[in-house]
């Protein structure tokens, strides 16, 4: 049972949060993972998410918002069902990272931090994701795709569009 009545989260997520706050010497340490998991469920960090997390951690909403605005993976607007994050940092750039980004832009018809009209895909240019030796690389819903070519990107995007893509949330 959730410690918060009328939680906006699914019972599994609410239970997870109840557990998370017990793990650390200080409850607030659970804030960043909670923000991420909340975002995974709701699609973004909504006002209601901020309010409930503040309540769960005995924080001011302002404290939650301060943290929320610092971390680049957290967002306050919905992303697409599949969030495509293409790395263009040095190792990727050297082997065609920008070609991959441009290809995604053309293919999806959207730019950086935009969402397709049907809400299926969003696109982001990101900094190094720790896959430099397998560059160029991107992530879709946390799943890594590496040694990319434009042909490979096409089949990855087609897989997601058909609901066959991997999601490691």
């Amino acid at each position: 049972m959730s410690t918060v009545t009328n939680s906006i989260f699914s019972s599994a997520t609410a239970a997870r949060f109840d557990h998370l706050v017990t793990l650390y010497p200080v409850k607030r340490s659970a804030l960043i993972p909670m923000l991420l998991y909340a975002q995974d469920e709701v699609g973004y960090v909504s006002d209601a998410v901020v309010a409930e997390l503040a309540q769960r951690l005995d924080l001011l909403e302002l404290d939650v918002r301060g943290v929320l605005s610092y971390y680049s993976m957290l967002r306050t607007k919905p992303a697409g069902k599949y969030n495509v994050q293409v790395c263009t940092n040095i190792s990727c750039m050297l082997v065609g990272g920008y070609d991959i980004l441009d290809h995604c832009k053309a293919k999806l018809g959207i730019g950086h931090k935009e969402v397709t009209a049907d809400g299926q895909f969003s696109l982001e240019e990101v900094e190094c994701i720790g896959a430099c030796c397998w560059a160029p690389a991107m992530q879709v819903n946390y799943d890594f795709h590496d040694n990319l070519t434009t042909v490979k990107v096409d089949s990855i995007l087609a897989d997601y569009a058909a609901g066959r893509g991997k999601d490691v949330k």
Binding site: V26, R28, Y71, S72
Partner: peptide
């Protein structure tokens, strides 16, 4: 206990990492 960040290079700096683990910027 395992912990996750949420996207920030600066958090790799040791004292910034401690702040982050304490649930702060």
């Amino acid at each position: 206990v395992t912990q996750t960040g949420a996207g920030a290079y600066e958090v790799g700096e040791e004292s910034a990492l401690m702040e982050s683990l304490e649930g702060k910027r």
